[in-house]
Design a protein around this nucleic acid. Structure first.
Length: 575
RNA sequence: CGCGCUGUCGUCUAACAGGUCAGGACGUCACCCUUUCACGGUGAAGACUUACGGGUUCGAACCCCGUCGGCGCGACCA
């Protein structure tokens, strides 16, 4: 997340100023190579809509120069030959020197210093007592350079100089060089520069004008200033901006992968599988976040437009972004707000867009969706004109759209729509969710002493509940009961029917037994099964109760009820 | 420990180089709508008055000094 935010701010800044956003892979640590990481970065940025102008083409890091990518290659491991000459140049100019100390020697020195309660620093105070081209005779240096392969080139940090720097976010900063050490610039062992050298050389060569990076680089800024000076590039030195870090939601410290695992939110843009351990980390994309929401929430973490606006598209961010509105202090990440953003973006989507996304969710649940006219016959499925073949789990797109329309207001993620409306596609396996215990029949209504007694309630209970209480449903469900089933609608229209009862009947309606019974009933009456079931299911989803019931009734021909239902629908439509 | 950055509601933040009842959003709670769940609407609490203590000033969240806290860096990592 932190990395994406940094990239985003760079992108916004570049695009606003009409500049180019360049990708360069800084893979100068041969020990830390992670297969797939480079591709991951490109894919993640691409998902966010951050498309590099230079350095990446067709999703790959560019290796050979062209008009659009004049500074190729863009992978530092492929720019090896470039760096050594610059490092040598600094040695010749007296800004750097060769160091022959082994890793073990240095660790020992550090341990000694620590034991004495001090911190070891390779600088003006110590370099004379270490093995390097400043302390050793020149012929020995020459010999060591030729015969050994683990030497380095170190920067010769000047003595007692105050480096005056300017940061686009933090303003003026001053540091005395005596607090800094002689950083390694180039490693003979793998013929590669360290970040410091490679970064300055490449930023110069690639004509970088602004460096917007994480706060952890601020302590290195004096070194970078001095490097530009040593190379004589001060005139074209880029401007720097150091971003505050993203902090963990609870407690102190910066956001880490573990926090996400513990608190249940992703810290990666895309799911990431650690190639070494096989461990998989959640990603915003896989967890159902929209890229727009992710980008928006990231942008607002440490930046504000100066007014109350909170919703921004990438285009709007480019217009509104400004470095002087970037917060100096670290920002704690709030997962709740992240969800809120997703919900807002979900509600902005059209039903057609959401349907496309929902179809993939349905597919994971074994539901097939076909894009064909409602009354078409597909693979043996008979939609009977109404878009749903419950038996074979095949539905038309039109049917899915109707469901999406019903439930989208209630969802934060696309996958939520399945949790809300699964019973519009499959019979629930677990009726307990509806307050029905397996084999125990329908529960009786909880007695509420405050609720006025409806004289019709008994009839209604007897006709609807009784058959379920009996063990043999088929035996008790007689056509006359079906008549009463529709009487339920009448109760609703009279506002005597409790919504808490609805859940129970919602479950019942999707129960196989009742479906079968209704099927018989409908056949008997020569009504198309699909249409009635479709309407019934929609009818019982809550928000659309009135509408769905009206649809059933008008279909069946009870115009009088239908009219009353239209009224109810109008009222319910406001919910 | 050294150096640097930083400090406004629980969280993200606003407050034009000093004058505001310190504003908004998320979250929380209440009420309304709805006899479900959500959505929506209205409102409240929430900053022991801007980490704390001094100073400058008629007046300080804002300027100065100090203290304390948080974070980063102190690698032949980035």
């Amino acid at each position: 997340m932190g990395g994406v935010r940094t990239a985003l701010y760079n992108y916004l800044y570049a695009k606003q100023k009409g500049g180019d956003f360049i990708i360069r892979i800084e893979d100068t640590d041969s020990h830390r190579f992670v297969p797939g990481a480079e591709q991951y970065i490109i894919e993640a940025l691409n998902w966010c809509g951050i498309v590099p102008d230079e350095g990446v083409q067709d999703g790959k890091v560019v290796e050979t120069a062209s008009a659009r990518h004049p500074h190729a290659p863009y992978r530092q491991s492929q720019r090896r030959p470039i760096y050594r000459q610059y490092a040598e140049q600094l040695v010749e100019a007296g800004w750097a020197y060769y160091a022959f100390d082994s890793a073990d020697e240095l660790t020992a020195r550090r341990a000694d210093a620590e034991a004495a309660g001090q911190t070891f620093m390779y600088n003006a105070a110590t370099r004379g007592s270490l093995r390097n081209s400043l302390s050793l005779p020149s012929d020995e240096v020459k010999q060591l350079l030729e015969t050994t392969t683990d030497w380095t080139i170190r920067f010769k940090m000047p003595l007692n100089r105050v480096v005056k720097m300017d940061d686009l976010i933090r303003g003026h900063v001053e540091v005395n060089t005596d607090t800094l050490d002689d950083k390694v610039l180039w490693k003979r062992a793998d013929e590669l520069p360290t970040y410091h050298l490679a970064n300055i050389v490449d930023d110069h060569l690639m004509e970088i004008t602004e460096v917007i990076r994480g706060e952890e680089w601020l302590p290195s800024l004096p070194l970078h200033y001095l490097l530009y000076e040593a190379f004589g590039w001060t005139e074209t030195m880029p401007r720097f901006a150091h971003l505050s870090l993203l902090l963990k939601p609870v407690g102190n410290g910066k956001l880490s992968k573990r926090d996400g695992d513990k608190l249940g939110f992703p810290v990666f843009p895309l799911a990431w599988k650690n190639p070494e351990t096989g461990e998989v980390s959640h990603g915003y994309r896989e967890d159902g976040y929209f890229p727009e929401a992710f980008v928006n929430l990231l942008a607002m973490l440490g930046w504000n437009p100066g007014d109350d606006r909170e919703m921004f598209t990438l285009e709007e961010l480019i217009k509104a972004f400004s470095l002087d509105k970037v917060q100096k202090a670290g920002a704690k990440f709030n997962p709740e707000k992240a969800k809120w953003y997703n919900k807002e973006y979900l509600r902005l989507k059209t039903t057609a867009e959401l349907t496309d996304l929902f179809i993939t969710v349905l597919d994971n649940h074994g539901i097939k969706v076909v894009d064909c006219p409602c009354n078409a016959l597909t693979a043996g499925a008979s939609f009977e004109g109404f878009g749903a073949d419950f038996q074979n789990h095949i539905f038309t797109r039109e049917y899915v759209e109707a469901v999406v329309e019903l439930v989208k207001e209630r969802a934060t993620f696309v996958a939520d729509m399945w949790d809300i409306a699964a019973y519009l596609f499959v019979s629930p396996a677990d009726f307990e969710a509806f307050g029905i215990k397996a084999g125990a029949g329908l529960p009786t209504k909880a007695a509420d002493p405050n609720r006025p007694v409806d004289p019709r309630a008994k009839v209604y209970d007897d006709t609807l509940t009784a058959p379920f209480l009996a063990k043999d449903v088929d035996k008790f469900w007689k056509p006359e009961h079906y008549e009463n089933c529709f009487e339920v609608c009448q109760y609703i229209s009279g506002a005597e029917f409790g919504f808490d009862d609805l859940d129970v009947y919602r479950g019942a309606m999707t129960a196989d037994a009742l479906e079968k019974a209704l099927e018989d009933y409908i056949k008997m009456r020569e009504y198309p099964m699909g249409k009635v079931m479709n309407s019934l299911r929609l009818a019982l989803t809550g928000a659309a109760s009135g509408l769905g019931i009206a649809a059933i009734l008008s279909f069946i021909g009870r115009r009088e009820f239908a009219r009353r239902m239209g009224y109810v629908a109008e009222r319910l439509g406001r919910i």
